[in-house]
Simulated scan of single mutants.
Amino acid sequence: MYCIFISVDLKPGAKARYLELIAENARASVEREPGCHTFDVLLDREQDNRVYLYEVYESPQALQAHKETPHYLRDREQINALIERQQVLRADVAGFFPPRG
């Protein structure tokens, strides 16, 4: 399994719209993409304009396929306009606890 953990710093006033758009993307990803196993949206408790995305894919190729889906491409321009800065950590999943099927 392949994971990306993204730290997203949003522009002032962008949080509500970003969360609306990213929730739609996350939901569609886990429902429609067999290679997407997890897409969690997390809110930082100390930095109000910081959001984290935790995404688990079958492989790096599944992540690439995600980036080519209609639901990803539809809102990408709007989502990017709301982001001040982001950092992406890429990792291999060593295990899930509890284990997943």
Rank of each mutant, 00 (worst) to 15 (best):
residue 9 D to V: 09
residue 37 H to F: 12
residue 30 V to N: 05
residue 97 F to D: 09
residue 10 L to I: 14
residue 43 L to A: 13
residue 71 H to I: 13
residue 26 A to K: 00
residue 13 G to E: 03
residue 61 Q to T: 00
residue 57 Y to F: 03
residue 31 E to G: 15
residue 72 Y to P: 02
residue 37 H to S: 12
residue 34 P to N: 02
residue 16 A to P: 05
residue 47 Q to M: 02
residue 87 Q to C: 11
residue 67 K to R: 15
residue 19 L to H: 07
residue 15 K to Y: 00
residue 18 Y to S: 07
residue 88 V to Q: 04
residue 42 L to G: 01
residue 85 R to H: 12
residue 49 N to P: 02
residue 72 Y to I: 02
residue 9 D to K: 08
residue 10 L to K: 01
residue 63 L to G: 01
residue 95 G to I: 13
residue 95 G to A: 13
residue 67 K to L: 12
residue 101 G to N: 06
residue 32 R to D: 15
residue 24 E to R: 08
residue 4 I to S: 03
residue 75 D to Q: 06
residue 90 R to L: 07
residue 54 Y to S: 04
residue 60 P to A: 01
residue 44 D to L: 05
residue 16 A to E: 15
residue 82 L to A: 03
residue 34 P to M: 10
residue 53 L to K: 09
residue 31 E to K: 12
residue 41 V to L: 05
residue 57 Y to E: 00
residue 17 R to E: 14
residue 90 R to S: 05
residue 91 A to V: 06
residue 79 I to R: 10
residue 13 G to P: 05
residue 99 P to D: 08
residue 77 E to Q: 10
residue 13 G to Y: 09
residue 7 S to V: 06
residue 66 H to L: 05
residue 11 K to L: 14
residue 27 R to W: 02
residue 96 F to C: 11
residue 29 S to M: 01
residue 96 F to S: 15
residue 83 I to C: 04
residue 64 Q to A: 14
residue 47 Q to S: 05
residue 41 V to F: 00
residue 86 Q to T: 13
residue 67 K to V: 03
residue 86 Q to A: 11
residue 6 I to P: 00
residue 101 G to P: 14
residue 25 N to H: 05
residue 65 A to T: 14
residue 14 A to W: 01
residue 20 E to R: 09
residue 56 V to Q: 01
residue 60 P to K: 10
residue 2 Y to I: 02
residue 54 Y to G: 00
residue 95 G to W: 10
residue 95 G to P: 07
residue 94 A to S: 08
residue 41 V to S: 10
residue 21 L to F: 02
residue 97 F to S: 14
residue 31 E to A: 12
residue 19 L to A: 04
residue 37 H to K: 07
residue 49 N to L: 14
residue 86 Q to Y: 13
residue 97 F to E: 00
residue 2 Y to A: 00
residue 75 D to M: 08
residue 85 R to V: 06
residue 75 D to Y: 12
residue 23 A to T: 15
residue 86 Q to L: 15
residue 55 E to S: 09
residue 6 I to E: 01
residue 70 P to E: 11
residue 46 E to Q: 14
residue 94 A to N: 11
residue 18 Y to V: 00
residue 85 R to N: 12
residue 72 Y to S: 02
residue 24 E to L: 15
residue 60 P to I: 08
residue 91 A to Q: 06
residue 62 A to T: 03
residue 30 V to H: 03
residue 48 D to W: 11
residue 45 R to H: 12
residue 43 L to E: 15
residue 1 M to S: 14
residue 74 R to N: 11
residue 95 G to Q: 04
residue 48 D to A: 12
residue 17 R to W: 05
residue 58 E to D: 14
residue 8 V to W: 01
